[in-house]
């Protein structure tokens, strides 16, 4: 895998990607990504409105959650996102087989997200953290369940991209579908990076 990518060029990026009006992937995926960003912007506003109205509940909130589960899922999202970025890079270098290997690594890593989430919810319920708890717990479930839904869509999309790559659907010249998926997956990762400190870290 490493040997095949030794022709990697300096970070000037590919010439055809330099156009100032470049839309990564396609327009349709960016409509979806912007809708996702607006949705979570509204949810973040709900979080902060609740936080300023109930500061004591939110100060005590993170202690009730599993920091280990939150950190593990952050590592999972970041690593899966990194693997997807490497898959795109390999495809740009015209190495579809290597690209598929990176996608498989991304999928195996990402599947840990719903598994950790399931274990976390069991742990939560055992420790009295439920959807009908205090306002911190309600916003926690509201945001993280919504994010889980977006991750689930991403996992289905990743399977599709893997199949397309495996059957030779992409090339170095045309892999817009893969870039569109990668953009969605990175955006979903970005949203988790915003959720993580709000519920697991911020005292």
């Amino acid at each position: 895998m490493e040997q095949a990518e030794t022709s990697d060029k300096p970070a000037s990026r590919d010439v055809d990607m330099v156009a100032s009006q470049r839309i990564p992937g396609n327009r349709a995926i960016w409509v979806g990504i912007f809708a996702e960003l607006v949705e979570f912007t509204l949810m973040f506003l709900v979080y902060f409105i609740a936080r300023v109205n109930h500061p004591q509940v939110f100060h005590a909130g993170p202690e009730k959650l599993s920091l280990l589960a939150g950190t593990a899922n952050t590592a999972v999202m970041l690593t899966s996102s990194y693997f997807v970025a490497r898959a795109v890079l390999a495809m740009r270098k015209d190495h579809p087989d290597i690209s598929l290997h990176w996608l498989i690594a991304a999928f195996i890593t990402a599947i840990a997200y719903p598994i950790v989430k399931t274990l976390e919810i069991r742990w939560n319920l055992d420790h009295g953290v439920s959807g009908d708890g205090d306002v911190f717990q309600m916003t926690y479930y509201y945001l993280t369940f919504n994010h889980l839904v977006h991750v689930s869509w991403g996992l289905l999309g990743m399977l599709w991209i893997m199949l397309r790559t495996g059957f030779g659907g992409y090339s170095a010249q045309d892999h817009h579908g893969m870039i569109a998926f990668a953009s969605y997956w990175h955006a979903t990762d970005l949203i988790w990076l915003m959720i993580f400190p709000l519920f697991y870290v911020l005292p």
Partner: peptide, 18 residues
Amino acid sequence: GRLIIDEFMQLGDASPAI
């Protein structure tokens, strides 16, 4: 967030609106 946007998404040379 900025690392994800610039390095993973590679939006540094994307459409300014995006």
